[in-house]
């Protein structure tokens, strides 16, 4: 267990180093826009980046350890940890990031519809009270995007091994997997219907009535 902690700490520090260089590098590469390099962002965010990364690394290595030592997966711990790391990166960037990009990252966007391309880059700098900065935006993102990412990864880790653990290495387990997939598809469909009703169609259309009746019959 100590090894997991030490390893996660080293990984987190290295991650922090990469974070500082990418911030400094990008700002320095855009010097023609005269944006200064803020040292307080460096001081304020780097420790929290390291801290969060430590949690992620620790949990992933713990999952890998359980799978390797207790469940007996054929790959070694680094291999499993790497794969889960790539997965959590993919899930995080497709789930947690979305709100960050779409909702408030300085973008001027109406509630209930997508970001108009024409408004892209129209930066909102003044918030309800004082200046709007990246820390305010991350707040809601972390409260909602983070747990949703966790749900995504948790579902993946759980359901990818649950059928074979219960039903053994047989076709029966595969059928259970297909059922899980079908349930997820139906859930997504229910969310889709609810959201479409909530925000409504944007365009008035001649065929709209007909289209709505078609939708209802299904």
């Amino acid at each position: 267990m100590t090894a997991i902690v030490i390893g996660a700490f080293i990984a987190a520090v290295i991650y922090g180093i990469f974070a500082t260089t990418s911030y400094a590098g990008r700002v320095a590469s855009q010097s023609r826009f005269k944006q200064p390099l803020y040292m307080d962002i460096m001081r304020y965010t780097t420790p929290s980046i390291i801290g969060h990364n430590f949690i992620v690394c620790f949990c992933l290595v713990a999952i890998a350890y359980i799978q390797y030592a207790i469940l007996g997966y054929p790959f070694s711990i680094p291999f499993l940890a790497l794969i889960w790391g790539i997965s959590v990166g993919a899930i995080g960037s497709s789930v947690g990031d979305v709100h960050y990009g779409g909702e408030r990252e300085f973008q001027n966007r109406e509630f209930g519809c997508g970001l108009n391309t024409a408004l892209s880059g129209r930066i909102v700098r003044r918030a309800e009270s004082g200046l709007r900065n990246s820390i305010d935006n991350v707040w809601f993102c972390a409260k909602f995007g983070g747990p949703a990412t966790g749900i995504g990864l948790g579902l993946t880790v759980f359901f990818s091994s649950w059928p074979t653990t219960i039903w053994g290495y047989t076709w029966k387990a595969m059928v259970v997997g297909v059922i899980i997939l079908a349930v997820m598809t139906i859930m997504n469909r229910l969310v889709e219907i609810q959201v479409k009703n909530a925000y409504g169609p944007y365009k008035e259309d001649k065929e709209e009535k007909e289209a709505v009746s078609v939708a209802h019959t299904h």
Binding site: V95, V98, G102, C113, G145, V191, E192, K196, A198, Y199
Partner: peptide
């Protein structure tokens, strides 16, 4: 699915 939750209830866009 998790991304859909964010799109539906966080960003608030119809699919």
């Amino acid at each position: 699915l998790a991304g859909g939750f964010i799109y539906a209830y966080g960003v608030a866009v119809p699919f």
